[in-house]
């Protein structure tokens, strides 16, 4: 088991290292960062000045080595756009994104699990069809369009919610719905299929034969087993939500790490983009690793393979 854990951690570390290297190279392949930093309309002298000042004139491998040796100590360098360190910037913006991610995940679970269960209990009924329709809609709606639709309805036509900002909990309602709704279909379908399988199993038949009521059978005995796959999927969905918040944060002006990533890409603030890519990939890799280890703990067969 220990060897298995070490192997998995080593693999996760290699994946994170590879992602950081690839993003470092790709970011620099998209045009001279000095030109993007100097802004549209800068003179040659301005650009050359910035290139030397920020060390973009050095070989890429030297720049990567410098960055990596700082990053392992938690020093992501100075943002070339914002006048603070990248670590400070991320510490300031990450909580907003985490808050949104957690809220969206809870929203998705609260919507998907009951819907999936009801759909399984009444298969092919009008409830099942409606749930299926809702999930197809969730997958089909482009999230930026859905976000704008909500803004128009709940901020312009019917001014119930603030259209943008992050100062109060009301500001998080619409972004949570948009981000969470997109994750709902997969969770719902998985809950439904899990529940259908469990409901056909022997122990449920036994429970019913013992004379237990439907609420007890479904709520107490069936649900626990049926939602297990959905719960493990939701950890991956959480990682996806952090990455997917780039567009949502920009539309709702939430000023989280997603919007920071977007703005940093536009301004060629490479140090910041690099750190965000690394942190998001570490979170993603971390979530996958946790999932793998938990599965291995529950199922000894996985440890052997």
């Amino acid at each position: 088991m220990q060897l298995f854990i070490l192997k998995r951690i080593g693999l996760a570390f290699l994946v994170a290292l590879f992602v950081s290297f690839l993003s470092f190279i790709l970011l620099r392949a998209g045009g001279d960062p000095a030109i993007a930093m100097a802004g549209e309309g800068a003179s040659e002298a301005d650009i050359e000045f910035i290139r030397v000042q920020f060390g973009f004139d050095r070989p890429v491998m030297v720049q990567y080595y410098d960055w990596l040796s700082g990053a392992v100590r938690g020093d992501f360098g100075q943002s070339t756009y914002f006048s603070s360190t990248v670590a400070e910037l991320i510490a300031e913006r990450l909580p907003v994104t985490l808050k949104l991610g957690v809220a969206a995940l809870i929203f998705a679970i609260l919507l998907a699990v009951p819907l999936g269960m009801i759909a399984a209990v009444y298969p092919n009924s009008i409830i099942d069809r409606t749930a299926l329709g809702l999930s197809v809609l969730g997958q089909a709606l482009p999230n930026f369009w859905f976000a704008l639709l909500l803004i128009v309805v709940f901020s312009v036509w019917w001014p119930l919610l603030p259209p943008s900002g992050n100062t109060t909990w009301q500001h998080f309602i619409m972004p949570t719905i948009v981000l969470g709704y997109y994750a709902t279909p997969a969770l719902m379908r998985l809950t439904r299929s899990g529940m259908l399988e469990v409901l056909r199993s022997d122990y449920i038949r036994t429970a019913r034969a013992k004379g237990l009521g439907p609420l007890q059978v479904i709520g107490k005995h069936a649900m626990r087993n049926a939602i297990l796959p959905a719960v493990s999927l939701s950890t991956v969905q959480f990682g996806y939500m952090l990455g997917g918040s780039v567009i949502i944060e920009s539309i709702f002006a939430l000023h989280g790490i997603g919007q920071l990533a977007w703005e940093s890409i536009l301004r060629a603030d490479l140090a910041t983009v690099q750190a965000i890519v690394l942190i998001l990939s570490l979170i993603y890799v971390g979530l996958n690793l946790t999932g793998d280890l938990l599965n291995a703990l529950l199922d000894p067969r996985i440890r052997v393979t």
Binding site: L148, I151, V152, V156, S164, S250, I251, A253, H255, E263
Partner: peptide, 14 residues
Amino acid sequence: TIPDINTQIAELLA
């Protein structure tokens, strides 16, 4: 600061 022009328009209309 609101990056998206559509959100800006919504704020103006609201």
